[in-house]
Design a protein around this nucleic acid. Structure first.
Lengths: 214, 214
DNA sequence: CACCATACTGAACAGATGTTCAGTCATGCA
DNA sequence: TGCATGACTGAACATCTGTTCAGTATGGTG
């Protein structure tokens, strides 16, 4: 039989299957089979299917927290002075977890099912990004903005899009953007675009105040 | 009873419910109740639940096609010369459909359930964006890029993030980014960032060739 | 040793779900 | 008028799903 503890085998199998198909489309019997236990044993450990879902959620939350705390951007935010700190979630996932980790997909599900926990993740990331950008602003590495809240949301949304559209981008680009090669490729392009802009600069000395063409 | 034809009532109800909860979490009886018909009648018209799902998919596809064809960017791409053409999908959705339209949510499901049809949408949008950007490049409105394919994917992903994270962004910003006010706010910020960049430009005359800090 | 908590199982159950089917009703056509 | 076609329904069916329950094995504790 598999080496691990029965309970953790169930938890791992549930995490993987929930991430792949979604919790609603995963049956207790599926999880039991994947963990090589009886269906009744799944409920013995977690009370109900929903209890298992909550346990998986909590597990994921601690994993993500640990990941964020290990990132240079966070270490900088709490005191130190980092150099290569971007706070990119996609980058963190790419470096902190193996390519076949179910975590990115699970997080995607969390956000897709407009779950309250997923929304809380997003809001907290936007908050954190806003703080980080403001700090970089004062240091002169980031341009000031008329709407720093919206810009922080923009950055986080763009970052999360990499997680949410991973498969689609992989087929469209021919490279998994969360793999090491894919990350360097994407980061180089994003850095260039984030530095010099997408549109050609007609007035290089323009301030942040600008009107949209109607 | 509701004014419309029975069949279209079922189709509309299915579109709305599939978009809200996902197809797997929606029962035939739910749809029947929403359309005020019997469950058997749903299957009478569409053969099976999966047949209904395919019919809804096809319906959505024509709606989206019609939307894209009505957009200035597309009219420009096929000959004319537009001014305000950005090709932004989020913008199209915001202007072409009422705020309570189930279409954005349905499309989100389509994309995130790594459905083949959703993947096809994304790839075709990236192709189209790449063509559009290349044209703008030659015209001088868009900066050249070392990796125009990845940049097109970047733009589309950022654009789609607005659809995928609509609810979360609404709570985080206090404004629905697909509403008229939300769109102007978002577009102003995005235009500023896409024009002058996010990072302060240390070397304003740098070309696209640049290295990432390791 | 006896005792007990815990991990675990097989079998069963109640409810929900997709689907089938015989039959009703209305409409248009011969 | 008679009749065929298609929209529509109520009732039933087989299957799947989450959950319950009585019972077994095991390992540690008094």
């Amino acid at each position: 039989m598999s080496p691990q503890d029965g309970r953790t085998r169930i938890l791992d199998a549930a995490l993987r299957l929930f991430a792949e198909r979604g919790a609603a489309a995963t049956t207790v019997r599926d999880i039991a089979a994947a963990a090589e236990v009886s269906p009744a044993n799944v409920l013995h450990h977690f009370g109900s299917k929903d209890g298992l879902r909550e346990a998986v959620d909590a597990h994921v939350e601690t994993l993500v927290e640990r990941m964020v705390e290990g990132d240079p951007a966070h270490r900088e935010a709490i005191g130190g002075a980092g150099e290569d700190a971007t706070g990119s979630l996609a980058e963190m996932f790419g470096t902190a977890f193996p390519p076949d980790s179910p975590l990115p997909a699970y997080l995607r599900r969390l956000i897709l099912d407009h779950d309250a926990r997923g929304a809380a993740f997003v809001t907290s990331w936007i908050d954190q990004s806003e703080r980080l950008l403001r700090e970089f602003e004062q240091r002169g590495t980031v341009r000031p903005s008329d709407d720093s809240r919206a810009r922080a949301a923009f950055v986080v949304a763009n970052d999360l899009a990499l997680l949410l559209l991973r498969e689609q981008l992989t087929t469209a680009l021919g490279t998994d953007p969360l793999s090491p090669e894919g990350m360097t490729r994407w980061a180089a392009m994003a850095l260039d675009t984030y530095t010099h802009g997408l549109y050609a600069d007609r007035d290089p000395h323009a301030t942040a105040t600008e009107e949209e063409t109607p």
